[in-house]
């Protein structure tokens, strides 16, 4: 396993007027090569949880290890942890600051102290992975389109060649085409490089089509986990928490009581029935 959380808890602005428990006894393990999804409504603690994965936040109680490194330890090499676990924040394009896209993607490799050749290779490699055309690299990150900004920001994290890529709502605020493209590229990245991916989202369709394991968070706790199909089959419970299942799951349940979570599976099943008829 690469990330292991044991009973971690975290409270925001402890002692202040707006004290808020964000995580409560959360335990989970993420194995190498997994494609894990985390869902939960706004304020359920998803973002707080993923910030623990690369040591930006440290658990108040409990233990979190990344590839055997305990992030709460005083001597823990957090820089190493952060290159192992690349975290892409919500609206990552808000962090762009350099004069050119190329320089911005190179920010992390430069901080890692790599050689200029290696940095150049990584920038090209990362921008190709996210599907950024090379001519964009010399433009200002403020004059390219929204979808391209998002990709540039993701490339900026990928350039560290992390072992785990954590994406916090990578499709928020994108149009359907931009959303599909980003998701397709993340899936491709996972299939081709075997990188471990953690996808935080509240787009149920996004999750159902990509992940192979799913955690559901509610009020700072993990309330359900399992394969997406199993989790989505309990959609009544999900709906009580303000979440939902993919529409196709609900449709197929009503049609024939079957647990299905992607349109593709539903299509196969319906075609099978039609052929038999």
């Amino acid at each position: 396993m690469i990330i292991k959380a044991e009973n971690i808890s975290y409270t925001y602005s402890e002692g202040g007027p707006f004290e808020k428990a964000a995580l409560y006894n959360v335990s989970l393990t993420i194995n190498r090569g997994d494609f894990v999804g985390i869902i939960g409504h706004t304020g359920s603690g998803k973002s707080t949880l993923v910030q623990h994965f690369n040591g930006l936040l440290k658990p108040e109680s409990g233990r979190l290890t990344v590839d055997g490194i305990d992030t709460s330890e005083k001597k823990a090499d957090l820089k190493k942890v952060r290159t192992k676990v690349g975290l892409v924040f919500q609206y990552p394009e808000h962090q762009l600051f350099e004069e050119t896209v190329r320089k911005d993607i190179a920010f992390a490799p430069v901080n890692m102290g790599l050689s200029p050749d290696e940095i150049h290779d990584r920038v090209i490699w990362a921008s190709r992975l996210v599907g950024l055309p090379e001519e964009i690299l010399d433009k200002s990150p403020f004059e390219i389109s929204g979808g391209q900004k998002r990709r540039a920001a993701i490339a900026g994290v990928l350039a560290m060649k992390p072992e785990v890529l954590v994406l916090d709502e990578p499709t928020a605020g994108l149009d359907p085409r931009g959303r599909d493209e980003i998701l397709r590229q993340i899936k491709k990245l996972h299939d081709e490089t075997g990188i471990t991916v953690v996808l935080v989202s509240h787009g149920m369709e996004d999750i159902a089509n990509t992940v192979n394991y799913l955690y559901v968070m509610n009020n700072g706790r993990i309330v359900m986990h399992g394969e997406p199909m199993k989790v989505f089959s309990r959609y009544e419970e999900l709906e009580e928490m303000g979440l939902t299942a993919p529409q196709v799951t609900k449709l197929m349940k009503k049609l024939c009581g079957l647990d299905v979570c992607t349109v593709h599976q539903a299509k196969e099943y319906i075609l099978g029935v039609l052929r038999r008829a």
């Binding site: 910030q51 690369n54 930006l56 820089k79 952060r82 290159t83 690349g86 975290l87 924040f89 990552p92 808000h94 962090q95 920010f107 992390a108 901080n111 890692m112 900026g156 994290v157 560290m160």
Partner: peptide, 13 residues
């Protein structure tokens, strides 16, 4: 705070 964290995630010190 958010931007600081995002840059720290990219190795900023």
């Amino acid at each position: 705070d958010k931007i600081m964290k995002a840059q720290m995630a990219r190795g900023a010190d």
